[in-house]
Nucleic acid binder design. Sequence first.
DNA 1: TCATCATGTTGTCTAGGACAAAAGATTGAC
DNA 2: GTCAATCTTTTGTCCTAGACAACATGATGA
Lengths: 308, 308
Amino acid sequence: MMTPTESQQVLYSIGAVERDTGLTKDTLRVWERRYGFPTPLRDLHGERVYSHEQVEKLRTLKRLLDRGHRPGRIIDRSLAELVELADAAPAQAAAGELAEPLHALIALVRQHRVAELRQELGQAVMRQGLAGFLTDTVGPLNRAIGDAWMRGQLEIFEEHLYTETMQSTLRGAIASIPQHGRPPRVLLTTFPNEQHHLGLLMAEAMCALEGATCVSLGTQTPIFDIVMAADSHRADIVALSFSAAYPAVQVADGLEELRTKVPARVAIWAGGTNAGLQRRAIEGVRVIGGLAAVGPAIADWQAATGVA
Amino acid sequence: MMTPTESQQVLYSIGAVERDTGLTKDTLRVWERRYGFPTPLRDLHGERVYSHEQVEKLRTLKRLLDRGHRPGRIIDRSLAELVELADAAPAQAAAGELAEPLHALIALVRQHRVAELRQELGQAVMRQGLAGFLTDTVGPLNRAIGDAWMRGQLEIFEEHLYTETMQSTLRGAIASIPQHGRPPRVLLTTFPNEQHHLGLLMAEAMCALEGATCVSLGTQTPIFDIVMAADSHRADIVALSFSAAYPAVQVADGLEELRTKVPARVAIWAGGTNAGLQRRAIEGVRVIGGLAAVGPAIADWQAATGVA
DNA sequence: TCATCATGTTGTCTAGGACAAAAGATTGAC
DNA sequence: GTCAATCTTTTGTCCTAGACAACATGATGA
């Protein structure tokens, strides 16, 4: 058996750190030059070699950047201080009073009781109805899971497990919604580099529930292909999902580019937890503020187009 | 109305090309230096700007590299010649005689008839049984779709549509397999940067069919987390899936690292269409050569561990 | 015929320097 | 005091060109 110290003797190349943290090699090198962190060792050939601890701190930094923090302000703090910072943030937005059932679900994730988790989620759909499940369970649960992960209360693989299980649940639920082929026809996808599939599935479920005809392209469709797909499927609405981690610049740029390339008769809707959506309004793009706003938006569309 | 020439005036930055092709910035620059391709223009600030045509050729090149071609040998050829090459390759491995039903399915994808595609796939599962569906339909179909895409017969969004639909079908099928909690316990996932979810689902379906207890973490789990997850779930087998596009170096490195960190009593299995798997054997890692090999592998495991 | 060795080939890493875009701070007008 | 415009700082991404290890290929000899 190895001691903890020995087992932590894991070293990462700059390429490995890029993969694990989502920070590019350029950024890693320029941070080292500017801020003096990280401070990788060098191997025989003079190449950077990162310790497990540094990678851990880099991952936490990345999460905080996604929340709007700036590297220069926080990079000097210790990992413990960063975690504290992460803890403080969600407290503002109604943290403590997580509903009891949610705690139970999180507990199942942390205890790796997959079969029970799957069953509980399935039963919750039945109990609350899909719409209630989405707004009252999935939404808050996603946030709680993300927070727990950042606080170090949840490992990455536990988050993966949750995501995978929830994906199955949602797909099962979506498959059980009868599709009549009635308008509006909604095309759902995300921009390249946006991998968050759960948000997309939630949107798809919500639209299908409201009687729309949904076609999902999955995640990461190049803009030019979204345009072609909207045309091919004669979509009435193109719906995009943006997670918190997606760069705000690319949200605005992408939506503007998409708006110019897609015919005006096709509506563009954007939703998700991304902060950039609230900041600057984009002409001809409707921002959907949460799942509850999907129903009214579809009602608006039907009213505007005179569909019975 | 713009002329075709004007509308093609789409220019890509080196970062955009990296995202769209999967070739790193480093590789793009070194190719330009060494082979004289690509030959991007420069913008006002001297930064590289790639034309749509060059990006197209780069994408095709990447696909050919994934098949084992070497850049120096093929980079000078025209896009048409490359496409021809892509056409010729699968001819070796039983190309022409694609079963009739597969052609019909591909036709549905190209005509964007989603509802029918979904229904046909569901019926195929019933008709062939899940095992037959996986080996005779999904496997060949994946390859055919990939080929068609490379030949320019299929747009990216059409491939996305196929993937999304197939994912729903497979998840539905997996959900319908009763799980008894019997050994072996199989943990399924992919390495970071490996996004190909379909291969993973196919593996999960196959294992579940053979009576194993499956836990999937989805794609892109850091190696350290795979180790923790294997421990938490008391996994008997860790199964990894590698698509053709995944760099062969990272396959070998990753598997070796994983082997040293996971207890010896846990088996490591690797499968998928990645060429690197065949090249060099890794001590303590079993390479699963295709879906049909899953059954025997599980039988072997059961025999070796004396499980009835 | 097969193993060993030399030769290409290829991707990834190195070093600072440069600059645009966004965020933050300051100023001035009403 | 509030808001808009301008200045300053911060920050990520791009630039050049050299180096080298890992792998594939071809040549050599047993």
